[in-house]
């Protein structure tokens, strides 16, 4: 008998640990995608995923159903990923590391994805590469807003709730990020005049 999400949440809150597995199954790809986009490498994303679902399990009693469960999971995942990146940067500063390993990993990862995808072998491969690179080159706070709004399809209000900031801040960051992207992708934006 398949349990609905609301029922799974109730059961998890009552201490039924078996209710966690279906929720993990449903949200693991979303959390991974988000964690990858913020941390930029699989190992770190894996740690973020672990911490996210452990927190979901341990803090389920704090979920009051005022927001959607999905938004609540988003919030935990984003916060965990941001904390992870901050800790990583602090470690890097303290160890005087100069190379950006995550940048390198990202580059190789996305290149590998492009290389392995037969569809991307076509003429749009270059465009995909540069668009992806442009998004990944944004500062963290601007990249998160772009990911949540353009790619995950969340509203300004939902993003504000996840990032614990005002909707005005979300709008402002989104606008700035779009202008940055426009500048980075100028050759491609100017090349077409279909509007």
């Amino acid at each position: 008998m398949e349990r609905t999400e609301a029922l799974l949440i109730d059961h998890l809150r009552e201490g039924d640990e078996t209710a966690l597995a279906p929720l993990v199954e449903k949200y693991k790809r979303m959390v991974h995608r988000l964690a990858m986009q913020i941390t930029k490498n699989h190992e770190d994303a894996n740690d973020v995923m672990q911490e996210t679902f452990i927190k979901v399990y341990q803090s389920i009693h704090t979920f009051r159903q005022e927001a959607a469960f999905e938004t609540w999971v988003y919030r935990i995942a984003v916060n965990e990923a941001l904390n992870f990146v901050k800790r990583r940067e602090r470690r890097r500063e303290s160890s005087l590391e100069t190379t950006d390993e995550s940048e390198f990993n990202t580059e190789t990862l996305w290149k590998a994805k492009i290389k392995n995808d037969p569809e991307i072998q076509a003429e749009k491969a270059e465009l995909r590469h540069w668009v992806t690179k442009a998004v990944n080159s944004l500062s963290l706070k601007h990249r998160i807003v772009v990911i949540l709004h353009e790619l995950e399809g969340l509203t300004h209000a939902e993003i504000a709730s996840i990032l614990n900031c005002s909707e005005g801040t979300v709008r402002s960051r989104l606008h700035y990020a779009r202008k940055q992207l426009r500048s980075l992708l100028k050759p491609y934006v100017d090349a077409t005049s279909d509007f």
Partner: peptide, 20 residues
């Protein structure tokens, strides 16, 4: 406005999402 709209569409259409 046209340029920013085009930029948004490029991101939505061509951004390669990470997979595992």
């Amino acid at each position: 406005i046209a340029a920013i709209r085009k930029t948004r569409d490029l991101v939505i259409d061509y951004y390669v999402e990470p997979v595992a």
